[in-house]
Design a protein around this nucleic acid. Structure first.
Length: 346
DNA sequence: ATGTATGATTCCGG
DNA sequence: CCGGAATCATACAT
């Protein structure tokens, strides 16, 4: 009995206790029709927004328009504004520091120095002149290589400029495109002018990084060209006939001491239109090669001896010179060159 | 294609 | 730094 009452009580108690829940349930239920509908509505809108990119352009346009006119739009817009307000603050902190890439500056400087990015005409010739000076070559000599170098440099410059222009144009196009897009979108989502500006900056940065690649490869090309040009020193060109004659004349007429002084070298260099270093090279080579095989040079020695004799002696002395220079001093004896010719020229 | 001539470069000793 | 010697790399001749 007790039990029963207790149970009953408890039951009623439970029942009574359970009662307050009823209104909630009822509220839930009744409000549910309305709330569910709204949720459904919002969910639907969000779904439409999320899938709008999957649709065809026309469809998407229509959908967009529909959304734009939707009664929920202002509310959603406000929500977006709020979200934006918060996220933008966090984004703003983590941006805007562009320390003018030192590498980019280096590249720019180099391109300017090489006359690629500088003023058209002057830059090129200046660079060529600089290269010529660097190579230390005589002016009159390898002018063909100069023009070659200049032509290639011009080619590089042209490519560089057209590419740069292309990039510039593409960048501008893309920027205006994006700006239009953003402006249009600003009707449906909150976009401040500042953000547009930021976006433009981002685009510009991207494009300038692309430009940097161009600059880098251009620099590379110039460097390669330059090294080739400088290495062309190694690409030997024989001296012209006149120069070798002058040098040989001096060599065989100073066979006893074929070491021209600095002044003599300078004079020879001037007469042969080559550098003093080249004169030194020539004498170095000549001495060692003459010494190594005197026999081979005998004929040459005779010839120059004869010629200089004729030149020097002119009308006064005559006759007996042609034979004698053939020094019988055939073997070895390299430290003591045949002074014979030397003597007779004197 | 091969060999030789030749200008330039490199290494080394003084 | 200069010159000798060896070597490289190409021009030139065959």
């Amino acid at each position: 009995m007790d039990e029963q009452t207790r149970l009953m009580h408890s039951h009623t108690g439970v029942g009574m206790a359970g009662h307050p829940g009823l209104p909630q349930h009822m509220q839930d239920s009744t409000g549910g029709t309305d709330g569910d509908g709204r949720k459904q509505d919002i969910g639907d809108i969000l779904q439409q927004i999320m899938t709008i990119t999957d649709q065809s352009l026309d469809e998407a346009q229509a959908r967009k328009h529909a959304l734009n006119c939707h009664r929920m739009k202002p509310a959603l817009f406000n929500v977006l504004c709020e979200i934006k307000e918060k996220t933008v603050l966090s984004i703003r902190g983590a941006q805007e520091e562009e320390p003018q890439d030192p590498q980019l500056m280096r590249l720019d400087n180099m391109l300017l120095a090489e006359g690629v990015s500088g003023p058209e005409k002057g830059g090129g010739s200046a660079a060529a002149a600089a290269a010529a000076a660097a190579s230390g070559a005589a002016a009159a000599e390898n002018s063909t290589e100069h023009s070659d170098y200049r032509a290639k440099l011009t080619q590089i410059r042209q490519i560089y400029h057209t590419e740069l222009e292309k990039y510039e144009q593409a960048c501008n196009e893309f920027t205006t495109h994006v700006m239009n897009l953003l402006r249009e979108q600003s009707r449906t989502r909150p976009i401040s002018p500042k953000e547009i500006e930021r976006m433009v900056n981002i685009i510009h940065r991207k494009f300038s990084s692309i430009q940097m690649q161009l600059k880098q490869s251009t620099c590379e090309a110039v460097m390669i060209l330059r090294s080739r040009f400088l290495d062309a020193r190694r690409k030997r060109r024989n001296f012209n006939k006149q120069a070798t004659e002058i040098l040989n004349e001096y060599f065989y007429s100073h066979l006893s001491n074929p070491y021209p002084s600095e002044e003599a070298k300078e004079e020879l260099a001037k007469k042969c239109a080559i550098t003093v270093a080249q004169v030194s090279n020539w004498f170095g080579n000549k001495r060692i090669r003459y010494k190594k095989n005197i026999g081979k040079f005998q004929e040459e020695a005779n010839m120059y001896a004869a010629r200089t004799a004729v030149n020097a002696a002119n009308a006064s002395s005559h006759g007996s010179q042609a034979n004698s220079p053939s020094t019988p001093n055939s073997a070895g004896g390299y430290p003591s060159p045949c002074y014979q010719s030397d003597r007779r020229i004197q």
